[in-house]
Structure formats: C-alpha cells, structure tokens
Design a protein around this nucleic acid. Structure first.
Length: 695
DNA sequence: TCAATTCCTGCCAAATCGC
DNA sequence: GCGATTTGGCAGGAATTGA
C-alpha cells in the first residue's frame, strides 16, 4: 500500500507582502473603515490593523464609531506611528521627536514604539553620525539593509544578536535593529516619511519578529525602563507597583479579553487631557491622582463620551480620545462612574470635573445643582430674555489637591448604585405612551438624551421628564440612551445610532423648547442649529478644503477657510472702496477708520458674489463613502473611492451631475491672464485675487 | 493691549426630498 | 406641483490667538 505524504508549505514572504498590501490600501483609502482625526489632519485606516497593533485602539474600537479624534498626540507623531503600524518601520524620525514618539506609543499601546526607550541610549550613541560614524559614513552592508527591510525574517535578528557596535554598526538586538542617521531636514527626508512604502533604506529602527515566548521581558526589567518623571502614565495603571513602567502582571497572560490590562484604555475622563500634546513634552504630566487641567474648549465634551462600565478600571487614568459618530452618544455612562465609585473616591476625581467642564453651564442653568465653587467662567442661568449662549466655562482647577471639588450632585439621584432605582426618586406615571418622571432634586438630566423632554419650572427644583416608552418605536430606541433602565444590545445600539433624534434632548422652559446637544450640552433654539453643530461631534459629514488637507465639520468653516486660499475679497467698504476678505475685517475697518457701526441701519458695505469658489454645492463627504479629495498634478480634484481607484470628485464625464473642478475653475482665465496668481512676493502660499475691471 | 482670526448660532434662502 | 426638510451662507457677537 502506497503511503501518502503530507506536504506543508510556508510562504515566508507572506507577512511582509500582506503588510505592504495593507499599507497600499491605506494610502489609497481602500477599505478603510475608520477615520482618526488628529489636530486638523485626517487619517484613514483599518480598524483591524490598528486594533491588532495597539492595545489602545483594541479597546477603543470595541466601543467607538467610524470616526475617532485623538487629542493627546500630535498629527506628525501619529503619522509616524501609523506608518510604523503599516510598515513595521520608523523612518527617519528626528531625534528630538523621538521622546514624544515613544510617549505617544506608550499612550497608544504600541509596544515596539513604547519600548524604544530601551535602546534609546544606544540610538543616541549612534545618532551623531559626524562623531560616531553614522550609516552615512559607514553605511550598513547590503545584507544588513536587506535584513532590516525584511523584518519577518528572524535570521537577521539571530545573526545580529548581541551585536553592539555603537557608532559604527547598527544596533541589533533580539527585538530591534537600530541605525542612526544624520538629521537632514530636507524635502527628501520629509517625503520619505510621507511615503514609507519605499524601501529606501533610510530606516533607523527596524523591528524583528520575536516569538512571544522568546521575547525578553526587558520592558519590565531593563533598567532603562525605570519610571521617569514624565512617564507616570502607567503609574496609574498599577498604583501598587513601584515601577511605573512595569507592565501589569496580567498584561501578557492569555485571557479571554486579550488586552485585559492594556496600556491605555479609552477611559473617558479628563485624565486624557493630561496626555495631550503639551503634557507629552513636559515633565510631570500625569499625576497619580489623575489631576489635570483641561486647557481648551475643544475638549469640552470629552467626558460625556466614552465612559463605559467596561472601562471602569480605577487604575487606568490614561489618554482618551474624542469619539465621534457613535459611542459618544452615551452620556449616561457618566453616571455609572458615580455609581461604581465611592462618593469620596479620589480615583476618579476628574471624571466629575470633566463632567463639570463639559456641562456645568448647561447643568447649572437647568438644575442649579452645580456645587462647583471655583468655576471662573460666567455660567449664566436662564433669564427672562432667553437662554444663555455662553457654554464654555472657563474652569480653572485652582486646587488640584482637592479631588473632591466641583462635584455635581448627580450621584445623589442614584441611590444604592442602581439606576433602576432612579424611577423611585419621584412620582411616575405612564400616559399616552410616555413615561413621566417628576424629580424633586437635582438629577441626572446629564444622563438624559434622545427623546426625553425635560419640563423645567414645574416647581422649585422640580422637573418633569417625559420618557418615551417602548410603544413608540423611534423614541423607544432613543430611550436606550436616556440613562434609564435599558436592555440594549449592541445591535440595538447600532440601530439607535441611525436614529434621527439621537443627538439631543429637549428642554422646555415656560413653554419654549430648547434643544440640548447630548454630547456637549449646548443649547439651541433652532433644531437646525443643533443639527449643524452636532457634526462637530459626529463628523458624519466632512468638508475637506480643496486647497490643503484640512477638514472641517461645517461647510461654512470650509468655505471661509478656502476663501483665505483664494484671497478673494468680497466685502467692500462703500465709504473708501477698500475690499476685505470677510465681514469681521470689514466691520473692524468701518468701526476703526470711519467710526461707524456696520451693523447699523445704513448700508456701509457691499458684499460681492463669490467668484473664486463654487459655493453651495453640498460637497461634503460622509463616512459611508471613503472619498478623499486629492488634487493631482493637473489640478483636478479627485477622490479615492472604495470601488474605484480614482474618480473625479465633482463629476467629470461621464457623470454629468457634479461639475468637475480644476484649477482653471479656481484661477479664472480671462484671455491668457489669470485672475489669481501666487502671491510670491510675500512669500506666502496664498494667492492674490485680482479683480478685473469689469467686475 | 489690541488687532486679527476663529468660533458660534439665529436667521433665512436655496436646494433637495417625498408625497 | 407643493410642502417639508436639508443645507449652507450671512450677520454679528464672543472667544481665542498672536504680536
């Protein structure tokens, strides 16, 4: 009987090829299912890749939607990290950015980058090519280069084990191979960073795959890993550990929940702010107690977004993202923090402070229950004339040593840590398919959201909250987010996200309806204003500038920004004939030069029609489309689509509907003379708008 | 301190949608 | 065709930024 052989084959190039293919897909925006917004840059990527490479993203994507905004990392640094994730390489990063890169890697839970601190000293030894002999002077052999660009081959790592010839040869350890290179801030270097898919051998760091069981536990034991003043981020992770950089014992233990102790969980609290850019570059960023300041109003709504019981790990006070589009619509989880923490807890002091920052004004004006005594901003309550408009509370935490300060009393309304008991706080009844709850204390209107109507002024400190019950399909779904008993599964959550009224709740005061954004608690008289505003959180629509890579959440912002590119001056002072780029400049001119009020009855200015832009085209990009505008060398605006390589965005033939926009459309030709021309004389990249005489 | 810039929101008209 | 809805421009106040 003839024996049959079993044949096995291993494609040793597969992993590298796969990674390269994924990177190419990312570069072209193919199949990208998540958008990460960092500063004003937008990065498209694949959730699977990010979650596999980053414990932070792994946790984050379990709850986040399609758009995530990171506030604790600079765009430039994140681009490097993203490039590493998709290429296994860090290419020509400036040495003075390395520390920030490492810290960002720690925050994002990208182990290789986070652990770069280990060989950093070695890198520094070889970084000065002039002194120590950089690869420019002693370039690695082609074999070495090959080994670096083939991270999937362990041979090079084995061959390079224990090779340490700082300054002359690359440092190759079991986990890393390192090269130093002279800093050359050239366009080539910048380009190489932008396009790391080119194996141009400018690699200074190159990882080697090390089987986990063989991976040395250097990250915990290497002396270089001792805590540093600005590496206290992990100290919160294990407060009982002397070594703040030591990974949690369970970190490498196989678990049903793989990143059971990720470096950085997406815990939404103000702690995230401590990992912001400023803090990344300075010492003592993250205090063990989680003390932090929230410096900008852009971070207003942070805490209302991500807190999740699943993430309530008191030991993880780490950077948190601004999550848009989906998960942020769960402000109720804030209350779960209070529920699960002792009232005098010092573990989550800032979760409450964040709450204050984001909603102190609205909560105050609604409930008058804010106990914050140190908020310095003007928090105005209702007035007879209407609703307060200033939502930003300039909140200064004067005494960071008082973790219990600025608490809202929202926890008071959930006795016994059971949200169900909420209904027992006041009378309730069901009528007309709606449940009405009357509260007689400061309550968690904070936790209310869609479909809920809050009737204030029922009585002193008494409020009626109308909650739609299940009979109302739409509002019943909305109720899932209301902070009241719910049994929503993930499916229903996703369904809820599609709901129309999932972005606000309504506050009725004296019969007048105010629409409250569920994320930041801003109030609006007009629902359309709230809808427009909400895109700031959801980024459901994106408005990319056609001249640069900036993206805006509002069409108007984009338009105003683009006008700065074109330089067109549409506002003209009728007194002196001067033209201005926007209303503010024009009004300022009229006030200061002519001592008149432009908002008065007399018309003091003229607004010319926009010539340089095709405005009002509803040219936004939704998440469902992966369209990314690209202006090619011919000046044609393209967008990359999932199903097509490149398609003219504004409709070249054969699609006649949208109009193709080219630079010729922007730089209107009149004869052979352009109306716009580069403003070279001023050294800017803007353009001078030349108004034709006939205009 | 002040000018420039950016953000914000009520209002409204145009565009689009749905019946 | 018409009303409802969506979209985005405009005004003008306010906040922020930078010199």
């Amino acid at each position: 009987m003839e024996s049959k052989k079993l044949i096995s084959a291993t494609d040793t190039q597969y992993s590298g090829t796969l990674l390269k293919s994924l990177n190419e897909q990312r570069i072209h925006g193919l199949f990208c299912d998540v958008t990460i917004i960092v500063e004003d840059r937008k990065f498209r990527a694949h959730r699977n890749i990010l979650s596999a490479s980053s414990t932070y993203f792994h946790q984050l994507f379990s709850v986040a939607g399609q758009v995530v905004e990171l506030s604790f990392v600079r765009a430039e640094i994140f681009a490097e990290i993203l490039n590493y994730i998709y290429s296994s390489k860090i290419v020509r990063i400036r040495s003075d950015s390395l520390e920030e890169l490492i810290k960002s890697g720690q925050l994002l839970g990208v182990k290789f980058i986070a652990d770069l601190g280990i060989p950093l000293s070695q890198v520094k030894n070889i970084s000065d090519g002039g002194k120590d002999g950089s690869p420019e002077e002693s370039p690695p052999s082609s074999d070495q280069k090959d080994s670096e660009t083939q991270p999937s081959t362990n041979q090079s790592a084995k061959a390079g084990l224990n090779q340490e010839v700082p300054g002359v040869m690359p440092v190759i350890t079991e986990a890393f191979s390192l090269y130093g290179d002279k800093l050359s801030i050239s366009k080539k270097a910048a380009d190489s960073r932008e396009n790391i898919s080119d194996d141009d051998d400018d690699v200074i760091f190159c990882s080697e795959l090390v089987p986990p069981k063989e991976r040395p536990s250097h990250s915990a034991e290497t002396p270089q890993q001792q805590p540093t003043p600005n590496a206290t981020i992990v100290s919160d992770q294990k407060t009982n550990s002397n070594n703040s950089r030591s990974p949690a014992p369970t970190q490498f233990v196989p678990n049903a929940n793989p990143p059971s102790q990720p470096l950085h969980k997406p815990v939404m609290s103000s702690q995230k702010v401590t990992a912001s850019v400023n803090n990344l570059s300075g010492p003592n960023q993250l205090q063990p107690s989680g003390e932090s300041l929230v410096p900008t109003q852009k971070l207003l709504a942070l805490n209302t977004i991500v807190l999740n019981p699943h993430h309530l790990n008191p030991s993880t006070h780490l950077a948190s993202p601004i999550i848009n589009s989906s998960y942020q619509k769960q402000p109720t989880v804030n209350l779960l923090v209070h529920k699960q923490q002792p009232s005098n807890s010092v573990i989550f002091p800032k979760s409450e402070i964040s709450l204050d920052r984001s909603c102190a004004s609205s909560t105050n004006l609604m409930m008058g229950s804010v106990t914050d005594q140190t908020a310095t901003g003007a928090v105005t309550a209702f007035s007879g004339s209407g609703f307060q408009k200033k939502h930003v509370v300039t909140f200064r935490q004067q005494s960071s040593s008082k973790p219990g300060a600025f608490k809202l009393k929202v926890c008071d309304v959930v006795p016994g840590g059971n949200r169900d008991s909420m209904t027992g706080l006041g009378s309730q009844h069901i009528m007309g398919g709606k449940k009405i709850i009357t509260l007689d204390t400061a309550s968690e209107i904070e936790g209310l959201s869609t479909g809920c109507k809050v009737y204030a002024n029922i009585g002193e400190d008494t409020y009626d909250i109308v909650i739609p019950v299940k009979d109302d399909p739409e509002e019943g779904e909305s109720r899932l987010n209301s902070g009241f008993p719910q049994t929503s599964g993930e499916g229903s959550l996703n369904k809820r996200m599609k709901l129309k009224h999932d972005d606000h709740y309504e506050l009725i005061v004296d019969g007048k309806v105010y629409y409250i954004c569920i994320v930041c608690k801003r109030s609006y008289v007009c629902l359309t204003s709230l809808r427009r505003h909400f895109n700031v959180h959801s980024w459901e629509k994106k408005y990319p500038c056609r001249y640069c890579d900036k993206v805006f959440p509002l069409a108007e912002y984009r338009t105003k920004h683009e006008i700065h590119h074109t330089g067109e001056r549409r506002y003209q002072c009728l007194t002196c004939g001067k033209t201005f780029i926007n209303y503010q400049v024009m009004a300022s001119h009229i006030r200061s030069v002519h001592s008149q009020d432009p908002s008065g009855d007399s018309k003091l200015y003229r607004l010319h029609p926009c010539r340089s832009l095709q405005i009002r085209q509803y040219a936004y990009i939704t998440d469902t489309s992966t369209s990314i505008p690209i202006i090619n060398e011919d000046g044609i605006v393209y967008h990359v689509d999932n199903n097509k390589n490149e398609t003219p965005v504004e409709g070249t033939a054969p699609v006649p509907q949208p109009k193709q926009m080219t630079w010729d459309d922007i730089f209107i030709q009149q004869g052979s003379q352009t109306l716009f021309k580069p403003n070279v004389s001023e050294g800017s990249n803007e353009f001078e708008f030349v108004i034709p005489e006939s205009y």
